[in-house]
Structures are given as C-alpha cells and as structure tokens.
C-alpha cells in the first residue's frame, strides 16, 4: 500500500515534470516564432520592398494577419508567379512576416517602409570611404537581371523605374552609389541586399549599355 502510494507519487511527479517541460518547450517555440534578429528583419524588409513591391505595394502585405503555414503558402505562390526570391531569401521573408503579421498582431502596425526607415542607419554602408572597387561587367548582367530589371526593364531601357542605359547618373559615381545604397524616392535602399562588389559589377555592366 505504502509502496503503491510512493509509486504513484513518483509517476505523478514524472508526469508533472513532463508537463512543465512540454509547456516550456512549446512556449519557447512560440517565442522563437515571434523573434527575429534586427539584421534579419532589415534584410527581409528590404527584400519585401525590392521583390514583392514590383507587383503590389506593401500595404497589401501589411493588412494581412496570418500564421506561418499561410505565409509559407503565400510566399511560395508568389515565387511560383515570378517573385525573385531564392529559397534562403524566401525563408527570411516568411520568418519576418510571421513575426510581424501573425494573427495576434495589433490591428494597426507601421508600414514596412516606416519600419525599415528606423532600421536603416544601423548598418548603412558608406559610399566611397572604403577605397575603389573594380566592377566586372560580365557578373553585373546577371545581378541586374535578378535585382533591377523588374523596375528598370530588360537591358536597362526603363519601365516602372527610369531608363538606366546611358543615364547621366552612371557618370556621377557619388550619386549612383548614394541612390543604390540608400534608395531614392520610390526606389528602396539596396545596401542590405547587395554588397559593394555586386553594386560595382552592376555599375560596370550598365556603362556597357
């Protein structure tokens, strides 16, 4: 009888430990889903502006409140339709949107542009301070097609964004770097997506057009 009591006590204690452990793990998973590193958030927000806002403004995204599985389906659908996101980039965007626009998020959230503006200064690259870079035009062609073409058109002949072939900005390197790194008007900042070598490669290719 006593042994039985002690035995059931042990079972009960084990159950309790298991239950507490399970709760802690589940809570941690929830936390993980809601958590995102600032650098990752900044990269994701830049990707949203650069790759999603080609077809629709970000207000459409900001009004959604979806769990991770629905965001995954949505982003996959967009990639299937031509959104220029690599699997790694898509994963970052899904993580960001799940953390920001989940079903429990407040009704009013700042726009993605406003949110990005507060993140921008943290890691902005300087334009000219790190010495000259030699751009390689052959690499620039593919980088342009992947990142710039949706707005600036195939062959840089213009589209939603201005024509860049033979554009005067190519001769003004300061203005060119300033625009690409920090954005200008409706064009987002590319500093979080492209490194300096890649920007130099795009510049080199553009001067051949």
């Amino acid at each position: 009888m006593r042994w039985l009591q002690r035995g059931s006590g042990v079972v009960l204690a084990l159950l309790l430990v298991a239950l507490v452990g399970w709760t802690v793990i589940t809570a941690a998973q929830e936390e993980d889903r809601a958590a995102i590193e600032p650098a990752t958030a900044r990269k994701a927000a830049t990707l949203v502006l650069a790759r999603c806002a080609v077809c629709h403004t970000t207000d459409l995204i900001a009004q959604q409140r979806l769990p991770q599985d629905r965001w995954t389906v949505t982003v996959e659908k967009m990639v299937h339709w031509g959104a220029e996101l690599s699997p790694e980039e898509a994963a970052v965007v899904i993580q960001y949107l799940t953390a920001r626009n989940h079903p429990g998020a407040p009704d009013q959230l700042p726009s993605i542009e406003a949110e990005l503006a507060t993140m921008e200064p943290a890691r902005a690259q300087s334009a000219a301070s790190d010495g000259p870079l030699t751009g390689i035009a052959a690499r620039g062609a593919a980088l342009f097609a992947h990142n710039c073409q949706a707005c600036h058109g195939e062959g840089a002949v213009g589209g939603a964004g201005p024509k860049l072939a033979r554009n005067a900005v190519l001769k003004n390197e300061g203005a060119f770097w300033e625009t690409v790194l920090h954005g200008r008007g409706p064009m987002p900042a590319w500093g979080a997506v492209l490194n300096r070598q890649e920007i130099a490669d795009i510049h080199a290719w553009l001067t051949t057009r």
Partner: peptide, 25 residues
C-alpha cells in the same frame, strides 16, 4: 529579442508616415 521587436513597434508609433508609401513610381 522579442523585447527588441516590441520596443521597435512602440518606437515607430502611429504618427510616423513615410512619404510616398509605395515603393514604386
């Protein structure tokens, strides 16, 4: 990390509106 995110959201506030809003012409 979650604290950072919450702070970020609070810091931005509703009054802050970025000119242009949309990211394309």
């Amino acid at each position: 990390r979650r604290g950072w995110f919450t702070t970020l959201l609070k810091g931005i506030g509703a009054g802050m509106v970025l000119g242009g809003g949309g990211s394309m012409r």
